[in-house]
């Protein structure tokens, strides 16, 4: 029987952790402030009380150590889920992630798998001060050996996290922190696999908006506004950046012949540039216009008073759509 509950994304993630801890005694959760406090975003709320300190515990304040210890625990029969408190605070763990987490399976010819999840609250839109709002996905997706996923809804957050914890590959799990408090009905049952599968969030016929994580709600809002203005926009949510679902994305763009990529990260050498390249290679003859990108500027993430100027917004998305060489304009 599947239960339906109205949950925020943070609550859905908490449920995913709780259900994984219940179902699998090898799952352990650790990081900074994830114990009695329940994490700075309360994603691990109540887990230490329910499962004990061996299953969910606070660690010293050292990200490389957290990820490195997780590597060892994963080598020795556990499924660690570690929390990096904020995107930019995960950088001390970068060497562990790229040199060990990503490569252990390959350098042992598959003998040593690292079934571990690195949860990272990422991106902006919450008025955070410096080092709290980075869109760091490009660093991870550029490293072979990692899966990189990012939910845009509470339901996907639950499913993707359950699946990531069950995966025998290491997963970098990027949580759009501005969506932690968005609520929806979540079905807490077994769902079809979503790692590696993009999803069409909204059907449309004139152009395709391709987005992931924090930019999906912007794309959906833009599609809503465009609809009132007589233009039908399709919205694709990647969910999984690695593996990348070329099939779904290319099919979507072929069906409309026009595309705009919406992503919050700086545009240069980014996930958005990769999407443009891949879609162009596959859909060139179906395209009526060059693919446009609406991304963050190539600047350090701006302070709270300026972030609205930096973040892709509905107007900027609709401007890009207007630029797609429409015959009637």
């Amino acid at each position: 029987m599947t239960a339906h509950e109205k949950l925020s994304m943070a609550q859905a993630l908490n449920r995913a952790l709780r259900d994984s801890l219940s179902d699998d005694p090898t799952v352990v959760v650790f990081g900074e402030d994830v114990g009695p406090l329940g994490g700075v975003f309360r994603v691990t709320d109540g887990l230490t009380a329910e499962f004990g300190e061996d299953r969910c515990f606070d660690t010293p304040l050292a990200e490389s150590g957290i990820v490195g210890v997780a590597v060892g625990m994963a080598m020795n029969g556990m499924r660690p889920v570690v929390e990096m408190q904020f995107d930019a605070f995960a950088y001390p763990a970068f060497e562990q992630i790229v040199s060990h987490v990503a490569k252990m399976r390959n350098r042992t010819r598959g003998k040593v798998a690292l079934p571990m999840v690195i949860r990272i609250p990422y991106a902006g839109g919450i008025g955070g001060v410096e080092h709290h709002c980075d869109s760091s996905e490009a660093y991870y997706v550029h490293t072979p050996g990692l899966h990189v996923v990012t939910p845009s809804t509470p339901a996907d957050a639950y499913t993707l996290l359950r699946e990531s914890i069950a995966s025998d590959d290491p997963v970098v799990f990027l949580e759009p922190k501005k969506l932690y408090w968005t609520k929806e009905e979540v079905e807490l049952g077994v769902k079809p696999p979503s790692i590696g599968r993009a999803v069409v969030r909204r059907e449309g016929t004139d152009a395709t908006l391709i987005a992931y994580g924090p930019s999906v709600p912007i794309a959906l809002e833009a599609a809503e506004v465009a609809d009132r203005e007589g233009r039908s926009l399709q919205v694709v949510d990647l969910r999984s950046i690695v593996p990348f679902d070329d099939e779904t994305v290319a099919a979507a763009v072929r069906s409309t012949g026009r595309a705009v990529v919406v992503a919050e990260a700086a545009g240069f050498a980014s996930v958005s540039s990769e999407i443009v390249a891949r879609v162009t290679e596959r859909c060139f003859h179906s395209l009526a216009a060059p693919i446009r990108r609406v991304t963050g500027f190539d600047i350090p993430y701006p302070p709270p008073k300026y972030e609205h100027l930096h973040l892709p917004g509905v107007d900027r998305v609709l401007d890009a759509v207007d630029d797609l060489q429409w015959e009637d304009s």
Partner: peptide, 17 residues
Amino acid sequence: ATQLPHAVGVAHAARLR
């Protein structure tokens, strides 16, 4: 020194069991 935290993780997992 990157292997040293792994050693701690292996030991901690064993200790938990």
